[in-house]
């Protein structure tokens, strides 16, 4: 059984000028110990999906259809009091900017023990021991001394380690990492990615790695889901998606990443831009930018269709005739 199993969820924002569908009919699942990379442009709906799982959608946004199962339990519409007990305990969240994720007025030790004591019945001394163990685990040197340090006394990379320690406090089964490396420099990025990879392998944590950086995906993810304009464009094993992308959007995305040794005069790009939520075209959202669009692409949204035997699926009419995801 998958740790997290999202099927056909839609997220809508009612506004004065009508309802905006930010995420539509999106399905994905993550197994224990697996890292699923979720890529897409800004505004594609990848962070929203993460927020929907932990029940932190900013109102008026809300899930209007579909189900979210955590270890088989439906958590789609849990009341806030129940959801709060899951957040931080079963699901750990890591946000983009470690510089602003920590409360500047409290020591990191206090923030760690506060989180632990909120979810677990233990004494303060036990919580402190656990916090130091966590700091050690995420690679903070001299954790006993650093326990009483304030966030501003840490570098960006170290702060992100603290944030990860906070997400791991109560041994979650799922970690949602929303752009965990975007605010960090490249060498620190690699360390944080390694850390996330090890945690997921050793502890069997399912990880949802939301990012727009294909390099990070290639480095860390087992599988990858590509989101375009609130819909899943393609999902599959990371090597197959990178080496043999099936959806025209994924293909364009891969082509636009320059490679060392490639002698290019201009960088290939995809003409046009992702449509705004209130101006999404009929049919496939990508059809105006797609060189191979057919008449059906302009009329009907393509379902996810299996493109091969290795579990790669693409929402593209080009593969019509293959197995359809229901």
């Amino acid at each position: 059984m998958a740790v997290i199993d999202i099927s056909n969820i839609s997220i809508e924002f009612p506004t004065r000028r009508g309802v905006l569908t930010a995420v539509e009919n999106l399905s994905l699942s993550i197994e224990a110990g697996e890292i699923l990379g979720v890529v897409g442009e800004s505004g594609a709906g990848k962070s929203l999906t993460g927020n929907a799982i932990v029940g932190l959608l900013e109102p008026p946004g809300h899930v209007t259809a579909g189900t979210i199962l955590l270890n088989g339990r439906d958590i789609t519409h849990l009341p806030e009091s129940e959801m709060r007990k899951i957040r931080g305990a079963k699901i750990g969240v890591i946000f983009q900017d470690p510089l602003t994720s920590l409360d500047p007025l409290y020591t990191i030790g206090r923030q760690l023990t506060q989180t632990i004591l909120t979810h677990k019945k233990m004494s303060h001394a036990e919580a402190k021991a656990r916090a130091i163990e966590l700091l050690n685990e995420v690679g903070i040197p001299a954790p006993e001394q650093r326990f009483d340090a304030f966030p501003h006394e840490f570098s960006g990379g170290m702060r992100q380690r603290v944030v990860i320690a906070l997400a791991l406090c109560c041994d979650p089964c799922l970690i949602i990492a929303d752009e965990p490396t975007t605010a960090l420099d490249v060498s620190v990025q690699a360390q944080i990615i390694d850390l996330l990879k090890n945690l997921s392998r050793e502890k069997g944590v399912a990880t949802m790695l939301v990012t727009h950086d294909m390099g990070v995906i290639a480095e860390a993810a087992d599988r990858v889901a590509v989101i375009y304009s609130g819909r899943l464009a393609e999902i599959g094993d990371v090597r197959s998606v990178i080496d043999a992308p099936k959806h025209p959007y994924t293909r364009g995305l891969m082509d636009s990443i320059p490679q060392i040794g490639q002698n290019l005069k201009t960088l290939p790009n995809i003409i046009g831009a992702m449509p705004r939520l209130d101006a999404r075209p009929e049919g496939c959202a990508f059809n105006p930018r797609c060189a191979k669009s057919k008449s059906i692409c302009r009329q009907q949204t393509a379902p996810l269709i299996e493109t091969g035997s290795d579990g790669q699926w693409a929402a593209c009419w080009a593969y019509e005739g293959g197995n359809k995801y229901v």
């Binding site: 932190l56 931080g88 602003t100 994720s101 500047p104 007025l105 909120t118 906070l166 997400a167 406090c169």
Partner: peptide, 25 residues
Amino acid sequence: TDFIKFARARGLKSRDINYGHALKN
């Protein structure tokens, strides 16, 4: 701010978030 969002994501009680983190800041 992000740290309030993160405090929510850590599942802290709203009393701790409101008085401990938000008010103090």
